[in-house]
Each structure stands twice: as C-alpha cells, then as structure tokens.
Amino acid sequence: MISKEEVFKIAHLARMAITDAQAEHFSKELSSIFEHIQKLNELDVSDVEPMTHVHGVFNVFREDQVEPSLEIQEVLKNAPDVNGQFFRVPIIKDHDSE
C-alpha cells in the first residue's frame, strides 16, 4: 500500500506538482501495481548476482582527445530563456536542490 503522503513525497523527489486528487489516484494505482510487483518476493535470489550488462561487456573507453564543441547558437537555440550566452532560471535558493 502506497499512501497519499508517500505519493506526495515521491512526486516532490521527481519534481512533479500533483493535486490532491491526483495523489489519491496515484496512491490507488501504484498500490495495485506494487501488489503485482510483490510477486518477485516469491523467489529466493540470495545467491544470484545482480545483472549489470546483459552481455557482460566491460572496459569500454575512449582516448583523451578533444573534438569541436557545439556552435554557441546551437547550444542556445532550444533554450526557453537566456541572458547573453547563459541559460537563465529564476533565482536559486538554498533549498532548491533538496
């Protein structure tokens, strides 16, 4: 069971504003989905290595070489708000990254 309070907390972590009614709705929906997910607890996987890469690939590198940057017009052309060459946002307060 995922409570409305938990739903609000998750929505905040994911930075999505939700209304009270939506929280109610999500609480029901997520609860039923997680009920299905609980099925996995039937399995004892204590001896199983978690999967990392499906084909077991490892050590993929590139050499330390520089390639040209994106043209500044291309960097900024999709931006909702700029100031000079900066991206602009409303002022950041201390708690904003919480």
């Binding site: 994911a14 999505m16 504003a17 946002v89 409303p90 904003d96």
Partner: peptide, 26 residues
C-alpha cells in the same frame, strides 16, 4: 522560483503514463 519551475514544467510537460512510471521508478 526554481523549485516551482521544475515542479510545474514537469507536471505540465509529462503525460499520465510517463508520470506514473516516473513515480514507480523514483
């Protein structure tokens, strides 16, 4: 403010199924 910018942008921008899966994943 910035927090509101994130909250509103993502709330308005994503559809229901995407929100649902972001919620599950988070």
């Amino acid at each position: 403010d910035l927090l509101e910018l994130y909250m509103q942008t993502r709330s308005e921008g994503f559809g229901d199924e995407v929100k649902r899966r972001i919620m599950i994943g988070t």
